[in-house]
Simulated assay, not measured.
Amino acid sequence: MGARLGYQLKHAFFALEELHAEHLADGPVSVRELSVLLLLDGREPESQQQAAERLGVDRTTMVGLLDSLETKGLVTRQPDPDDRRRNVVVLTAAGRAALKAAKAASDRAERQLLAELSPTEAAQFRRLLARVVPH
């Protein structure tokens, strides 16, 4: 069973989630909130429904994540300048700073997960995953 790809991927994911939780523990965002900040970074503002679809979460979950991030001052919901009937979600300056710190923590977690691989092997592993996982 341990040699099955699904088993290995699942346990690698669980290990990475634990490392993320450990490395993000002192910061302002959780792993799930980091996903939202990464999604919003460097893109045109999106509605919370669009963001939920891109993250693959239901609207209720997205509302909870955005409410938490908004309470922390990391995102804001604003009327879309092109369509006043729609609100878009935008990173605040504090959100960009939190994202920078959380990305550094996430990078540390990933390096720790891949520590048994050489830098060349880690890069190859990432390239191979990119080939089999559609973006």
Results as ranks from 00 to 15, higher is better:
residue 31 V to F: 15
residue 8 Q to S: 10
residue 44 E to F: 13
residue 31 V to E: 15
residue 3 A to F: 14
residue 89 V to C: 06
residue 90 V to C: 08
residue 84 R to Y: 10
residue 90 V to H: 06
residue 105 A to L: 01
residue 67 D to C: 09
residue 66 L to R: 06
residue 123 A to L: 03
residue 42 G to D: 03
residue 57 V to C: 03
residue 28 P to M: 08
residue 5 L to S: 04
residue 1 M to A: 09
residue 46 E to S: 13
residue 123 A to Y: 07
residue 8 Q to V: 15
residue 109 A to Q: 02
residue 88 V to A: 04
residue 110 E to C: 09
residue 49 Q to N: 14
residue 113 L to E: 07
residue 89 V to T: 09
residue 107 D to N: 07
residue 23 H to D: 00
residue 61 T to L: 07
residue 4 R to P: 07
residue 23 H to A: 01
residue 14 F to S: 12
residue 56 G to S: 02
residue 49 Q to M: 15
residue 32 R to A: 12
residue 59 R to L: 08
residue 57 V to E: 02
residue 110 E to H: 13
residue 39 L to E: 12
residue 1 M to T: 15
residue 89 V to D: 03
residue 46 E to A: 15
residue 110 E to G: 03
residue 113 L to N: 01
residue 78 Q to N: 14
residue 22 E to Q: 10
residue 45 P to S: 01
residue 22 E to M: 11
residue 65 L to Y: 15
residue 117 L to Q: 05
residue 116 E to R: 09
residue 89 V to H: 06
residue 87 N to H: 11
residue 133 V to A: 07
residue 68 S to A: 13
residue 25 A to T: 00
residue 43 R to C: 04
residue 127 R to V: 03
residue 23 H to F: 12
residue 27 G to L: 10
residue 79 P to V: 05
residue 87 N to E: 14
residue 20 H to Y: 10
residue 60 T to D: 13
residue 4 R to Q: 12
residue 134 P to W: 08
